[in-house]
Design a protein around this nucleic acid. Structure first.
Length: 182
DNA sequence: CCGCCGATCTTT
DNA sequence: AAGATCGGCGGG
């Protein structure tokens, strides 16, 4: 695995405004099992009780309670009974928020490829419901986040695949990234 | 308890 | 355009 030397994201990085974190995560690296590196190229922000599209939009439920907890933990849910979707919890403890990881560009030294779509991303990185609640800020966790060292061009737009609160520009994409084909 | 429907993806 | 596939959640 290549050494990049970036700093690992601390809890205070995630414990900020969800929209800001979603934008700042573009270009950051997911490091999985210490062997797989994937640079994030697309995210979406899901807010708290004010966001009808968010799982936290109607207050905490057994599934979404983790979104109200401390930042830096992984919120994973099952989509359409088939796919896993991974989020990173944001905001101060007690305030709901999470960033959905939608696409990443894998750089493992041998094969370089993109994982487009949240289900494909989880599949490619081996993230399942078993990883729900994982603390990304713990040395013991198999998934870590490395902060980016420079700012890629980022475009904001409406989120994808939702039927409520459809206009809010809470989707963030690395503008012009070659791996972003669908 | 029952029924609906989704932060998706693949195939037709 | 539609099917796979199932758990969470809201209504009764």
């Amino acid at each position: 695995m290549q050494r990049h030397g970036q700093e690992l994201a601390e809890r205070r990085f995630f414990a900020r405004d969800t929209t800001v974190v979603a934008r700042d995560l573009i270009g950051a690296y997911l490091v999985v099992d210490g062997t797989l590196r994937a640079q994030i190229i697309e995210t979406e922000a899901y807010l708290g009780v004010t966001d009808a599209a968010s799982h936290a939009g109607r207050g905490p439920t057994p599934r979404s309670a983790i979104m109200f907890g401390p930042a830096g933990h992984l919120y994973v849910y099952l989509s359409y009974g088939i796919h896993h979707c991974a989020n990173i919890v944001t905001e101060a403890d007690g305030t709901a928020g999470a960033v959905l990881l939608r696409a990443a560009h894998v750089v493992d030294g041998v094969a370089v490829h993109s994982l487009c779509g949240p289900g494909n991303l989880c599949r490619g990185l081996g993230i399942t419901l078993a990883d729900k609640g994982m603390d990304l800020c713990s040395d013991a966790s198999r998934v870590r986040v490395e902060r980016r060292t420079n700012d890629p061009p980022v475009i904001a737009g409406p989120r994808i695949g939702i039927s409520r609160n459809i206009d809010a520009p809470l989707r963030f994409v690395w503008d012009g990234h070659p791996g972003l084909s669908r």
